[in-house]
């Protein structure tokens, strides 16, 4: 592929199918274009005032039916055989559970470790088990030529062996809501030894930190917030549930209203067709999180996904929101 590394075991077999069909296509397109241009010039009205009716030619038509059919069948076979290879993971693959939710990816390793970016060892086969907790997402790593829709209620499976060191983009490929284009992550391919150090490390600081610190500044252009080490537990919860993708705690307007000063304020809500003014208290906040369809804050798009949080989490978050300063008006 142009401008794209062959970073996994899959890349090569996809690219070879591409090159074959591309070559045939270019030849076909050039031949047709050349024939049209040549005929238009050679048989122009001034050069050839006397046209000839030719109603058809059985053998010629048979040839241009059978030859494309044959070529197409070769393309089909090539595409199928190379596709089959992508579906048979080696037995010694490391299994990583991938969960997509609006609008972030999370990765869970056999050890129970959970990350928001994927870490793998060079040359070691990896099998991904893909699940969605809300709508359909698409797991797509262009440099690996890997893609699979992540359908709620089903588990998909992909495998690859990373062949190049470095960090590569993961993107969501199926429209999943307002922040679809920010549902990004990275896969980091590390030397086997480095991977083992990271994976088996018992050091707590190491466990919670990404081993490749901020791979590149362009890694996440989306509104992914950074959190200080001494953050309150409720803030960590907000971060974990991706609330801060859309809401801020410092008064900035995002996709959704800021949390700063929200608690205890009176806001306009759209309920069905009507608009009402309501005091934002604990009940309103909790319902806003667990069943956001009921009332929509005026001026914001109806895109808030349902979040299933435990009672303790809800209480902790509401208490935290109460502690955030005073009201910015919108």
């Amino acid at each position: 592929m142009p401008f794209l590394e062959q970073a996994s075991s899959v890349s090569q077999s996809v690219d070879s199918v591409f090159l074959f069909i591309f070559a045939v296509s270019v030849a076909f397109l050039l031949a047709i274009t050349f024939a049209i241009v040549y005929f238009v010039i050679r048989y122009s009205r001034s050069r050839n005032p006397e046209p000839v009716d030719i109603e058809g030619n059985f053998w010629l038509e048979l040839v241009w039916t059978v030859v494309p059919l044959g070529l197409f069948l070769v393309m089909f076979t090539f595409g199928w055989t190379n596709y089959r290879q992508l579906k048979d993971p080696p037995r010694d693959s490391m299994v990583v559970e991938v969960t997509g939710k609006q609008w972030a990816w999370s990765f869970k390793y056999p050890s129970g470790r959970q990350t928001s970016e994927l870490y793998v060892a060079l040359g070691r086969p990896v099998r991904l088990e893909l699940k969605s907790s809300d709508v359909i997402h698409g797991f797509f790593i262009p440099a690996f030529r890997l893609k699979l829709d992540v359908v709620p209620g089903a588990t998909g499976s992909l495998w690859f062996t990373p062949l190049l060191l470095g960090s590569f983009d993961i993107q969501c490929s199926v429209i999943c809501g307002v922040n679809h284009s920010y549902m990004l992550s990275k896969v980091h391919v590390m030397p086997e030894a480095d991977f083992k150090t990271w994976y088996f490390s018992r050091d707590d600081a190491m466990r919670h930190k990404d081993p490749v610190p901020a791979a590149s500044p362009s890694a996440s252009p989306g509104p992914r917030p950074t959190v200080a080490p001494d953050e309150p537990p409720a803030l960590a919860m907000l971060k974990r549930h991706d609330c801060l993708e859309c809401h801020s705690v410092d008064g900035k307007t995002g996709v959704g209203p800021t949390f700063k000063g929200l608690f205890g304020s009176v806001q306009e809500f759209v309920v069905g067709e009507a608009t009402t003014k309501t005091l934002v208290d604990e009940t309103v906040l909790i319902q806003g999180i667990t069943d956001p369809g009921v009332r929509l804050m005026k001026g914001y798009p109806p895109v808030m996904p349902k979040r299933e949080l435990s009672r303790q989490e809800l209480v902790a978050i509401v208490t935290y929101l109460e502690s955030l300063g005073t009201v910015p008006k919108r």
């Binding site: 996809v14 591409f18 296509s25 393309m75 089909f76 090539f78 190379n82 698409g138 030529r145 893609k147």
Partner: peptide, 25 residues
């Protein structure tokens, strides 16, 4: 004829399963 052929041929590329995995969406 030219544009349709180009469109048709890029469609053929997506008909090939291995390639479709990369090109889809």
């Amino acid at each position: 004829i030219f544009l349709f052929s180009l469109g048709g041929l890029t469609g053929v590329m997506q008909g090939a399963l291995a390639l479709n995995v990369h090109l889809h969406d």
